[in-house]
């Protein structure tokens, strides 16, 4: 596949300019602009870098320097589903290391590699701020909480088979390119899917409710609580 196959279309150019225009200074748009490039190209391509540079009036080398600094930007094509297994200490200890090993074996890929069918890219990731749901796996940056090697295998098998998969406390999973478009600041229609909070997020609140414990005051109180607290 030659790089000219993926020349950016007019819509993308217009959206790159639109992102830059959101900010008091255009260059602030570079991070979301690179997310947009990934959503269109499936990775950060030389054409994408040139386009960002042209829109912002900076050199391609400057854009390249940024694109190579941040780990979410990929130079190799990413599959439809980016599967990230947290192997930072807490998740690793709780089972993340075994989950990652099982997936490497099951998918027959190494770290940062994509399955032959182009469906799944596997990567070990750092702490994703969901430690109370360890071990955690992210699919296209959606939470898959409380995983086991077996549940992780089931998720990737379902993804490869084209079955609909939901985040454990979020929406239906979209593709990696669709996710990158949201990160570029172009919302999709899934904000209202999934719960407000997963079970672990609510454990302390439930204990407080059961014991009638409050902080007093009125802020953030439910209407039904107000009689008790004032």
């Amino acid at each position: 596949m030659s790089s000219t196959d993926s020349a950016l279309d007019e819509k993308t150019w217009a959206e790159l300019r639109e992102i830059a225009a959101r900010y008091p200074e255009a260059r602030s748009g570079l991070l979301p602009m690179l997310h947009l490039v990934q959503s269109v190209e499936g990775r950060v391509t030389p054409e994408g870098i040139e386009a960002c540079a042209e829109v912002l009036g900076i050199s391609a080398a400057e854009v390249n320097g940024v694109a190579t600094f941040y780990t979410m930007y990929k130079r190799k094509p990413v599959g439809d589903y980016h599967v990230g297994v947290c192997t930072n200490t807490l998740c690793a200890v709780m089972g993340g290391d075994l989950i990652f090993e099982r997936l490497k074996d099951h998918l027959d890929v190494g770290n940062d590699e994509t399955t032959e069918d182009g469906k799944v890219t596997l990567e070990h990731i750092e702490c994703n701020a969901a430690c109370d749901y360890a071990p955690v796996m992210m699919v296209n940056w959606e939470f898959m909480d409380n995983q086991t090697p077996e549940s992780a295998v089931q998720v990737v098998d379902d993804l490869r088979a084209g079955n609909e998969v939901h985040s454990t406390r979020g929406p239906r999973l979209c593709t990696w390119r669709e996710a990158e478009r949201v990160l570029a600041g172009f919302p999709d229609d899934r904000a209202d899917e999934g719960p407000a909070a997963g079970p672990a997020s609510l454990v302390g609140l439930k204990i407080a409710r059961d014991n009638g414990w409050t902080a007093g005051g009125t802020y953030g109180s439910r209407e039904s609580d107000k009689g008790e607290t004032t």
């Binding site: 407000a196 909070a197 302390g204 609140l205 407080a208 902080a215 953030g220």
Partner: peptide, 18 residues
């Protein structure tokens, strides 16, 4: 003061809290 003092978390269990 109570042992737990939900303020920021106090509406997390509300219907469509977001």
């Amino acid at each position: 003061t109570d042992t737990l003092t939900p303020v920021l978390t106090n509406n997390w269990d509300a219907e469509r809290a977001w």
